[in-house]
């Protein structure tokens, strides 16, 4: 059974009409840029793409509670941003997103509240503002290149390690954790952005707005 047919069946099971299920499945698979084709059976897809089908299945009907177990593992860099956007949309629509991840930088950047599981106990982590204040970060400014094709749009907030984003007419300044800087540069360059400035910060020097990282996920 193809990924599209599978999602259509699941949509119908969840109460959608056939046409609504088909169009929703198309939209979600297009948005998540399923590699391998919509007509490929989910079993034949790679881990990351099978994960995209699973994610699309969870989103066929707007979820009130979305539980994701390490959702970024296996996903390609482009899908990272889309996933973060989707999580934000679910939260904005009044839903709750619960997700797990081994990387503190990811949970801190995206969750409004984080819990740590250690030695069989769950504990509420310290507030993110306190945690981030002690971590070294880098401000990277990207700009639209003078010549060549216009850069493709990126969901900066969703990329790993991104702490804050400031936007201008033709430039974007991203505050990113130092260990995630190389990955950010690589992704941005692949999307056609040009690097204008890379500036390391001291731990006390946090002047960029953190509005984008707070309260996006309830």
């Amino acid at each position: 059974m193809s990924a599209l047919a599978y999602l259509t069946h699941m949509g119908r099971v969840r109460g959608l009409t056939t046409s609504a299920a088909v169009s929703r499945a198309h939209r979600l698979l297009d948005r998540l840029t399923l590699v391998g084709g919509k007509s490929a059976p989910p079993r034949s897809l790679s881990k990351g793409n099978a994960q995209k089908v699973a994610l699309a299945q969870a989103l066929l009907v707007e979820p009130g509670l979305l539980v994701l177990d390490e959702p970024w593992s296996g996903l390609d860099a482009d899908a990272h941003g889309v996933l973060a956007e989707i999580m934000t949309e679910v939260a904005d629509a009044g839903g709750t997103v619960i997700f797990t991840d081994h990387r503190e930088s990811v949970t801190r950047a995206r969750a409004s509240r984080t819990y740590t599981v250690a030695k069989g106990r769950i504990a509420l982590s310290e507030p993110e503002t306190v945690a981030t204040a002690h971590r070294p970060s880098v401000d990277v400014t990207f700009t639209v290149p003078d010549s060549g094709a216009a850069p493709r749009d990126l969901a900066w907030e969703g990329l790993p390690g991104v702490l804050a984003v400031g936007r201008a007419a033709t430039a974007v300044t991203v505050q990113v954790e130092r260990e995630a800087t190389d990955a950010l540069l690589f992704t941005a360059l692949r999307h056609g952005w040009s690097v204008m400035q890379v500036l390391g910060r001291s731990v006390q020097d946090h002047h960029l707005s953190k509005a984008t990282m707070k309260g996006s996920i309830r």
């Binding site: 059974m1 069946h9 119908r12 099971v13």
Partner: peptide
Amino acid sequence: IALIRYTFATALHT
């Protein structure tokens, strides 16, 4: 009916 259709489709494909 949707569940029966899904079960039929899975049975046919497998």
